[in-house]
Amino acid sequence: MTSDMADKTRPLIIHAGFHKTGTTTLQRTLRENRALLKPHCNIQLKWKVRPLVHATRGYSTWRDPLSLAKVSLRADEYWAEQPTYKNRGLILSAEELAGHMPGRDDVPDYRPAIDNLREIVTAAQRRYEKSGQQADVRIVMTTRQADPWLESAFWEHVKSSGITMSLEEFKTRVRPAADTRPLLQELAEAIAPVPVIPLALEHWQALPLGLASPLLDLVGVPPKTRDKLVPLPPENTRLPQPVLDELLDLNRKISDREARNVAKRALMDAHERTLAGD
């Protein structure tokens, strides 16, 4: 059956990255408004695609055929569990579908995202073709200007890993990955005619619903429903600079991973207690 003869699914919106581009706020906005959105679209976040995310992150590290085959397998399993999407659409938001965030020794860039997303798109097309449908997949990638992204990515690595380099060293090393425009062009060519839609954080963050707004446009949520949605303040905001500096100092001083993580957790817990007024 050719694609012009097949019935299309409702829009299947896959928001697959990038990290540190307002994704936490976007996902919480979708989650908190799930009940109102349910008649129009199925909202799925990272916890719904854990096996697939595990595979995409694995491929971003190992970059070998076996790891990519696992992505294909997990993508087939994911789509096999999905409904026909004849009456409502899908918003799947999980930045780890692009793989790990660059900056670690074994993850220098986002290039594995191209293969990861090609496998996910192809799996969707296979699944719906079997039921006589054309999968109306649209890939959304949220972006951010290079310098703010590099700073945010660095301090996230400081918080969650044992990174010891300075911010300036990190910027020098990772800056090529901060310009995602060439990669998005390659991705668009790799999965054409499936559209790749870049959304700049700086353009959308001032709107009441932020980056959720264009996703809701793409999936066709009507204005009368949009007017009832509850906007949320920014999530996952950066820790104060003195706390971040202490975390980096702990990374440099404590070589044992378990002991380091305990010390860092205690520091962040103390900061949270201070905010709570305890």
Results as ranks from 00 to 15, higher is better:
S161N: 10
A190R: 03
T274E: 13
K130T: 02
L90P: 03
L250I: 14
K264M: 05
G277S: 02
V243K: 12
E95N: 07
W149N: 05
A206P: 05
K130V: 02
V243P: 01
N42K: 07
D4A: 12
L248Y: 15
S161T: 14
L117R: 12
A212G: 11
P223M: 05
T84M: 06
Y110W: 12
D245G: 11
S166K: 02
R10L: 02
D105Q: 04
N116S: 07
R181V: 11
E95L: 01
P240A: 13
R257L: 10
L117C: 14
Q185V: 07
D217M: 02
M141Y: 11
W47S: 09
V107F: 08
G220P: 05
D278K: 04
E129D: 14
R238M: 14
R34Q: 15
D136I: 01
T56H: 10
V221E: 01
G162T: 02
V194H: 03
E156Q: 15
S72F: 08
I163V: 08
L248C: 15
L92K: 09
D76Q: 08
R252F: 12
R181Y: 13
F154Q: 09
A206H: 15
R226H: 01
S152R: 06
T143D: 07
G99L: 01
L66H: 11
P222G: 09
L207F: 15
L199F: 06
L232A: 07
Y85Q: 04
R88A: 14
L211I: 06
G210T: 05
K86A: 15
S131T: 11
R118M: 13
I43P: 01
L199E: 11
K224P: 00
G210I: 01
N42I: 04
L97M: 08
V174T: 00
L207T: 07
W79P: 06
P39V: 06
W47C: 01
V219G: 06
R126K: 12
A178H: 07
G58S: 06
R57F: 06
A153R: 10
I114M: 08
H157G: 14
L232Y: 07
S3D: 15
Y59T: 02
R74M: 14
L73N: 12
G132W: 06
T143V: 09
L244I: 13
I163C: 04
N116C: 15
V221Y: 01
R144G: 09
H203R: 08
V53Y: 05
G17E: 00
H157T: 09
E81P: 00
K228I: 00
T25M: 08
A270T: 02
A178L: 05
L239F: 14
A135M: 00
A80K: 09
Q134N: 05
R260Q: 08
N33V: 10
I13F: 02
R127F: 03
L36Y: 04
K48N: 14
A276D: 09
F154I: 05
Q134V: 00
N251C: 12
H100G: 01
Y59Q: 07
E189W: 06
Q133L: 05
R127Q: 12
T29W: 11
R104H: 08
N251Q: 10
D245Y: 13
D217H: 02
L184D: 11
L250T: 09
L199T: 03
R57E: 13
P233A: 13
F154D: 11
R273K: 13
L239M: 05
P176G: 05
G17H: 00
A212M: 10
P222T: 05
R252S: 10
L216F: 07
Q125E: 15
